[in-house]
Design a binder for these strands. Structure first.
Lengths: 358, 358
DNA sequence: CTGAAAGCGCTTACAG
DNA sequence: CTGAAAGCGCTTACAG
C-alpha cells in the first residue's frame, strides 16, 4: 500500500534526509569511512574517497549537525558575547564574523549582556556550557574583562578577543591599533596649522580611550606640541558628555581651534555645544571624531572621523578562532588588514591664515 | 590511584557534567521519568516529581541540549533571517527576540542575507535544514517575500513575520500598524497650520512605504486636505534620494511648508537639500521623518519622527513563535503593545501666522 | 588503510 | 502513573 518502495539504500518518505548509513551502503563502505571522509581525515584511499564523495553527491547528503555535536561534545556554533552600545559596531562585527563562518559551516549565536549585571559571569557560564560553543568572540569592552577570560579558560572554551591593545597571545587577539588612527588625526590637524588643540577622552576604564589618547598625544609630541592640561578632558563616550565637554573647552579664556573627540557621539556633542554658543562651523572650530558612524556623514558639517574596519576585524577574529578547528580547510590564513584610516570631511579645515601643509 | 572515588551516582572528573542517568539513579527512578519531569509532562506523581527535582538541584543537572536536539529532531535555536540595512533596527529586534528567548532556554542565530542574491532561497534552505531551527523570525522586507514563506512551509519550519500589513494568520504575524504613526504625523502637521504638505515615499515595492503613505493620505483627507500630485514623490529610502527629492520639492514654483519623509534617512536628506538651498530650518520648512533613528536626536535641528517599538515587536514575534512549543511555560501570552508614536522635536514647528491648534 | 562495537545523552514507541 | 528497549545520527576507542 506504500507508493515508495522500502529500500534500505535510499531514505524514503518526505522530509527524510539521508544519513551516513545510506551513504555507506551506497558506496559499499562502513559508516566509519564515510565519517573519515566528512572529517577530512587523510588516511583514506583515493579510490574509496571518490566512491564516498560520489555517494554523498548522489544522495544530497549533509551530515546531521545535532548528531555530530553530540558525538563531538561540541557544537558548530560560535558565540558573540558583547556589551557594546553601538548598533553599527555590533552589526558590522556580526557581518564580519559571518563572512568567515558561513563557508566553514558554522553559525553565529549572539549574546548581548550587561557588564553591570551581577549575574554576568553566571549568565556567560550558562550560555557557553549549554551551547558547547566551538568558540567565543569578545569585542570591547567585554574583551578587557579578565574575569570573563578566566571563566572561558576554566570552561575550556576557545576565544578570540578584539581590543585596542594586545591583551593576550596573538592567536587569541585581534588588535585594532587605534593609536595609529589617533596619530593620523593629530598629524593632520597640525598640518592644517592648528596648534591650540583639545582632546576629549572617553572613560579611563576603556582600553580604547587610553590607547587613542596615547596615540594622539605621542603624535602631537613628535611635532613639538604638548596639550594644555585645561584642553585635556574626559567624557563618557556619550553625546551628552560631548556637549558638556564642548562647553567646558569653548568656555576657556583661550579656547582651542580644534577638538579631537575619541568617539563620534562625543564629537557630535561638541558640535552641538559649538552651535549653542553661536560658533560658525567649521570656520571657527575644527572637530574630528573617531568611529565613522553612519551619522558622521549625515550631520552638518559632515564629521571628519577615524574609521576602524570593524567588519574586517570580526572576520579576522572568526578566522583565528576556527583556524585550529577546521585546519586545512583554511588557506594559510590570509588575514585582512585592520588598520584605522582618517576619513576627511568638512568638519575640520585648515586654520585660517595658516601655512599650507608641507 | 584516583583521588576521586568512582561512584556511579555522581559524575567524576573535571568537566564531566551530570547526565539524566545520574539524576535517575539519585532519585531512584528511571531516566524516562526524569525526562518527563524535564519536559513538564503532567502525568508524574507529585512525590516522584519532587524527588526528581531535588536530585536535579543536588547535582546541578542541566539537560544536554545537543542530545535533546538529536532526539527531538529539532534544535533549541531560533533564526533571525533578515535583509535590513538599518543597524539600529537589526540590533533592537535582536534584543527584543532575546528578551523572550532567554528565559525559555532558546538561543538566537542571526542570518543576514541579500534579497538580490540568486542563492537566497538555497541559502535559507540550507540554514534552516542544517540547524533544524525551532523557528524563524522574518522582519521586513524579507517578511514580504512569499517565496521564502513557501519554502519555510515546505521545510516544516515554524515562522513569524513582522510587517506593516497583516500578511498572514495572526499566530504567524506581528503587524506594526505603521499607518497609525503616519496618520499621527499628518494630523500634527495640520494642527500646526500646514496646508501645503509634501510626501516623500520609499520604494513602492516596500510594504511599509505603501502603508505609511496610505495612513498619511487618509489622515490628511479626513482634515479635508488632498496632496498636490507634484508634492507626492518617491525616493529609495536612502539619504541621497532624500537630498534629490528635497531639491525637487523645494524647487517647485509653490514649495511645500512641510515635508513628511517615510524614513529618517530620507528626512535627513531633505534637511540637507534645504540647507544647500539656504533655507532657515525649521523656520522656513518643517520636516518629519519615520523610524526615530538615534541620529534623529543628533542632527540639527533635531528631527521630529515616528518611532516604532522595534524591540517590543521582536519580543512579540519570539513569544508568538515559541508559544505552541513551550506551552504552559508561558503566561497567557501577555503581548506587549506595538503601536507607533510621534516623537516631537525641533525640526517641525507651527506655520508662522497659523492659528494655535485646537 | 578500513571496520565492528560501543557510546554521546537524550526521546519515542510500546508495555504494563 | 512508570519503565525497559530501541533509536536519533554521528564519533571515539580499539582492532586488524
Amino acid at each position: 500500500m506504500t507508493d515508495v518502495p522500502d529500500n534500505e539504500h535510499t531514505p524514503s518518505g518526505p522530509g527524510k534526509r539521508p544519513t551516513i548509513n545510506d551513504v555507506a551502503h551506497l558506496a559499499g563502505v562502513s559508516k566509519k569511512t564515510v565519517s573519515r571522509v566528512i572529517n577530512r581525515v587523510a588516511t583514506v584511499g583515493e579510490d574509496v574517497r571518490e566512491r564516498v564523495d560520489n555517494a554523498i553527491c548522489a544522495l544530497g547528503f549533509t551530515p546531521n549537525l545535532q548528531a555530530r555535536s553530540l558525538a563531538f561534545r561540541r557544537s558548530f556554533l560560535v558565540g558573540l558575547i558583547y556589551d557594546n552600545p553601538s548598533p553599527t559596531y555590533v552589526v558590522n562585527m556580526q557581518l564580519g564574523v559571518l563572512d568567515a563562518l558561513g563557508p566553514l559551516g558554522f553559525e553565529l549565536v549572539v549574546h548581548p549582556c550587561s557588564r553591570e549585571a551581577p549575574s554576568l559571569l553566571d549568565d556567560i557560564r550558562g550560555f557557553v556550557e549549554r551551547q558547547r560553543l566551538a568558540g567565543a568572540i569578545l569585542p570591547p569592552p567585554l574583551s578587557e574583562d579578565e574575569r570573563i577570560i578566566a571563566l572561558l579558560r576554566e570552561l575550556g572554551c576557545r576565544y578570540v578577543r578584539v581590543a585596542a591593545l594586545a591583551l593576550d597571545e596573538p592567536e587569541a587577539m585581534v588588535t585594532t591599533n587605534d593609536q595609529l588612527g589617533a596619530a593620523e588625526a593629530a598629524r593632520w590637524l597640525v598640518d592644517q596649522g592648528h596648534r591650540r588643540i583639545a582632546l576629549v577622552r572617553g572613560p579611563s576604564s576603556f582600553c580604547s580611550s587610553e590607547v587613542r589618547g596615547q596615540g594622539f598625544l605621542s603624535a602631537l609630541a613628535e611635532r613639538g606640541i604638548t596639550l594644555d592640561p585645561a584642553c585635556d578632558v574626559a567624557g563618557a563616550y556619550t553625546f551628552e558628555s560631548g556637549v558638556e565637554m564642548g562647553h567646558r573647552l569653548l568656555g576657556l579664556a583661550d579656547p582651542p581651534t580644534a577638538i579631537f573627540a575619541l568617539n563620534d557621539d562625543m564629537a557630535i556633542g561638541v558640535m552641538q555645544a559649538a552651535r549653542e554658543r553661536g560658533l560658525d562651523l567649521p570656520a571657527q572650530l575644527s572637530i574630528v571624531g573617531f568611529d565613522d558612524l553612519p551619522m558622521a556623514a549625515r550631520v552638518w558639517p559632515n564629521l571628519t572621523s577615524v574609521r576602524l574596519p570593524i567588519r574586517e576585524m570580526g572576520n579576522m577574529a572568526a578566522l583565528k578562532l576556527l583556524a585550529p578547528i577546521v585546519g586545512d580547510a583554511l588557506e594559510p590564513l590570509s588575514l585582512p588588514d585592520v588598520r584605522p584610516a582618517l576619513v576627511l570631511r568638512q568638519s575640520a579645515i585648515a586654520l585660517p591664515g595658516a601655512e599650507p601643509p608641507r
